[in-house]
Design a protein around this nucleic acid. Structure first.
Lengths: 148, 148
DNA sequence: AACAAATTGTAGTATATGCTATATTTTAGC
DNA sequence: GCTAAAATATAGCATATACTACAATTTGTT
């Protein structure tokens, strides 16, 4: 008595490959997500407070300072920030570029959601997660919507 | 020579707490994300193929069967699926409910992006990531947009 | 200058999610 | 029934990201 059926479906194979591609994109989005959040926040803190400290980043993200310290170490390995023990955190040119791109995308998604009729509070929270999953085509569509 | 400035800003403290809340929501979204993707896919496979097998799930998600096996074990611990060695995977009532909710949200976000003017291919990939970061208010706004 | 407070660093732990390699079980074909 | 192929399970490894506890350093106050 077979406990499962076997089906051969070449068309479904193609659909599956497409879906797999989509899921891989999502995982890649996630892998980049923390870096984008950090450099964006570091950029904000430098502009608003003159410097970025681990304690401020931790408060902003709702994690412990240990999590921030370890994350900063990884970002330094990726060439996005520079930091030294007990010193402020700085962005590299690469980090600043990523921060700018992230902020632009964040700003656009936020403006779009508000224009769509989402209350600002909800829009701000949702934009935080949505911004990392927007392809250029979707960004373009949101821009067109904002211009109408 | 101080290496950083100290600023006291009560209003900024409130803003930081709000931001932290937003980031926590995003992390909670992520924590739930894999479960939603799995139960939605399992539901799809059961409906379209009569059964859900690890090998099909792995292909669809673009991961190895080992990753699926471990993830299924976690979902079973969460009461979302039932599975036994070398046997098909089934959804529990709880899992079926989550799958339905996830699919509805997925469908809505996808339709919305297409209506917005995003090419279907991009819309499908973006929806995969976006669907997990949509609050009820944003869902409502998308529904209104689709009805216009 | 001394001391308290605040911040940062280190060690260790935990879970999630991904992989390779290999073993085991089930299914399909002959 | 036997064997090959396919699917699944297990072991071990890796990275990311989160925490607690405690130590070290810096900053602020007196």
């Amino acid at each position: 008595m077979p406990v499962r059926t076997r089906r051969k479906n070449p068309r479904r194979a193609v659909a599956t490959e497409t879906a797999a591609h989509g899921h891989r994109r999502t995982r890649m989005d996630h892998a980049q997500e923390l870096a984008e959040d950090y450099v964006e926040l570091i950029d904000d803190l430098i502009q608003k407070c003159g410097e970025a400290r681990a304690v401020d980043i931790a408060r902003h993200l709702g994690v412990t300072h240990v999590t921030v310290t370890k994350s900063i170490a990884r970002l330094q390995n990726e060439g996005l920030v520079t930091s030294a023990p007990y010193r402020s955190i700085f962005l590299t040119d690469k980090g600043r570029l990523l921060a700018r791109r992230a902020r632009e995308r964040h700003r656009l998604v936020l403006d779009f959601l508000i224009a769509l009729g989402v209350p600002r509070n909800d829009a701000e929270i949702d934009a935080e997660g949505i911004e990392h999953h927007i392809s250029p085509r979707t960004l373009d569509a949101m821009k067109r919507f904002l211009k109408r």
